[in-house]
């Protein structure tokens, strides 16, 4: 295996494009190194980009934040601005692994690993986060929602990699939340998860809503019917019942060692309900 630290995004893209064997980008390494240890993947080329410009920075941009691809969970969690604007995104990221893993793991790594259970992705999706992609043809922006295409798969083309995530600005009376179910209190992969992002009017009526669920389908799934159930309501019991039904209907999980179809479906609804109430309270709603 070769380990390379390219001196620019352009050279990194070229290296990636030209590489004939198995290539991996090293961000926090908390997935790649585990896969190497388990002999699931043995890269011929490992490209480390952490040292490149902007990769480890969080910058304010048009009322939102641009988060470099090598910013660790711990660094994100310590950033007061992002915490205030997108608390659900931060809590999703911070749920990944242990304190030790937080010292290394990154949102972009979590996203590009392509796991349907990735904790940072649902809240990025409900936040409308944008991934900036570099490749042989330069840079382009796409919604985070369009990055994962299936377990272990992304829409990135040959030679492409993500350099940052943009979390947009948002109005007053808006917030988000993320919850997952795990059997222990820490250290597990999500069995099911839900993120909810809400915008309220001055009376506490929901004007915008996005609901995303994780670990219950091949990719994180935005549930439009769940959004519709919340918009125009103050999250009354009827709206919540509809939300739960919409979420359960959107689930198409698998039975595996971590959970059953019935359990994943049921808990996804419960988590969406609870996340919606947290997001509502954070947005200033009182019910």
């Amino acid at each position: 295996m070769r380990y390379v630290k390219p001196d620019s995004f352009e050279n990194a893209a070229q290296l990636l494009f030209d590489s004939t064997g198995i290539t991996r980008i090293l961000a926090g390494g908390t997935d790649v190194l585990v896969q190497m240890k388990a002999e699931m993947v043995e890269p011929d080329l490992l490209i480390d980009l952490k040292h490149l410009s902007g990769m480890r920075e969080i910058t304010h941009e048009n009322g939102g934040f641009r988060i470099g691809a090598a910013v660790s969970g711990a660094e994100l969690g310590e950033h007061a601005g992002v915490n205030a604007l997108w608390p659900g995104v931060v809590e999703g990221m911070e749920l990944i692994g242990s304190t030790q893993v937080q010292g290394r793991a990154t949102m972009v790594g979590n996203l590009c690993n392509g796991s349907p259970a990735a904790d940072s992705v649902p809240a990025m999706v409900t936040a409308g986060a944008i991934a900036r992609i570099h490749g042989p043809d330069g840079a382009r922006d796409i919604p985070v929602y369009e990055v994962p295409t299936g377990p272990g798969k992304t829409s990135l083309a040959r030679g492409e990699f993500i350099t940052s995530i943009y979390l947009p600005a948002r109005p007053e009376n808006a917030s988000d939340a993320y919850l997952r179910f795990i059997p222990r209190t820490e250290m597990d992969i999500a069995v099911s998860s839900a993120a909810v992002s809400l915008e309220l009017d001055s009376k506490g009526i929901c004007t915008e809503a996005k609901v995303a669920i994780g670990a219950v389908a091949p990719t994180v799934r935005l549930v439009d019917d769940a959004s519709a159930a919340l918009i125009g309501t103050s999250l009354d019991d009827d709206a919540i019942t509809k939300l739960v039904a919409a979420v359960e209907a959107a689930c198409s999980p698998i039975d595996d060692k971590r959970g059953t179809i019935a359990f994943r479906t049921k808990t996804a609804g419960v988590l969406a309900k609870r996340a919606a109430k947290i997001a509502y309270a954070r947005a200033g709603g009182t019910s």
Binding site: T185, E186, M187
Partner: peptide, 16 residues
């Protein structure tokens, strides 16, 4: 065996 790791063989952690 499907869970030959300390990730999926879940021994109690301190916060449990």
């Amino acid at each position: 065996l499907q869970n030959a790791s300390l990730l999926d063989y879940r021994v109690p952690v301190a916060s449990d």
